[in-house]
């Protein structure tokens, strides 16, 4: 048996792979499209207040269990998009930053205290706060990006933040995890108080 054969094949394989690494390949990239998705995807995770609230939605959903575990993360992006629509249209909405801070406080307390309101009440509460988050994003949307890709990236990032919250919240199944989830809720509420102080002071 020729023991060198695998090595020679490997060399040829690597050489072939390296040949596919040319200086520039700009195939099928429409102008602004990648920028649109990337900036849309990064927008929700660029603000700590948004991130905490969205993760808290997932945490609370996990605490409440089925069907809230998926109803809340569905309600949030849809109503957030509605808020974004309001922001884009220039519909006046007062107290945006206070509403965002309040969302972190209230959702954090819900997780901390393990409160279990009826599903409809939880969904309305989450949807109400989502409007403030969406409105803030809608007002800040940049010019020139690919609208569809930006919107798609924006929604996907929001959904993934909820998913992170749900996965963290799944620790709720164990006694130690339950305490950790409650502590996380307390942390979100405290951060919300800080955001509220900032919003009022501004």
């Amino acid at each position: 048996m020729n023991t060198h054969r695998p090595w020679k094949l490997s060399v040829a394989g690597w050489a072939a792979l390296l040949l596919f690494a040319p200086a520039t390949v700009l195939a099928h990239q429409e102008i602004g499209q990648i920028t649109g998705f990337a900036s849309g995807f990064l927008h929700p995770i660029s603000g700590f207040d948004h991130v905490l609230a969205m993760v808290a939605v997932g945490l609370w959903g996990a605490v409440l269990g089925s069907p809230a575990i998926w109803v809340l993360p569905v309600a949030f992006p849809v109503t957030m998009a509605f808020g974004g629509l309001m922001g884009l249209l220039g519909v006046p909405l007062p107290g945006i930053e206070i509403g965002i801070a309040a969302s972190a406080i209230v959702l954090g307390i819900m997780v901390l205290a393990q409160l279990r309101p009826p599903l409809w009440a939880a969904a309305i509460l989450v949807a109400f706060f989502a409007i403030f988050h969406g409105y803030a994003h809608g007002k800040e949307l940049p010019e020139g990006a690919s609208a569809l890709l930006y919107s798609f990236g924006f929604v996907v990032a929001t959904g993934l933040l909820h998913l992170v919250g749900i996965l963290l919240g799944e620790a709720h199944r164990w006694a130690v995890g339950r305490q950790a989830v409650r502590a996380a809720g307390g942390g979100v509420a405290l951060a919300g108080l800080f955001f509220l102080w900032q919003a009022v002071a501004a």
């Binding site: 998926w70 569905v74 992006p77 849809v78 509605f82 629509l85 249209l89 809608g138 798609f152 929604v155």
Partner: peptide, 27 residues
């Protein structure tokens, strides 16, 4: 099946945001 419905909500939200983008220049 819930994952499919979540994907639907993401598409709905994307469409709603797109409507805002379309309406913005006219205003």
């Amino acid at each position: 099946r819930i994952a499919v419905r979540v994907a639907g909500s993401w598409i709905a939200a994307t469409g709603m945001l797109m409507l805002g983008w379309l309406a913005r220049p006219t205003l």
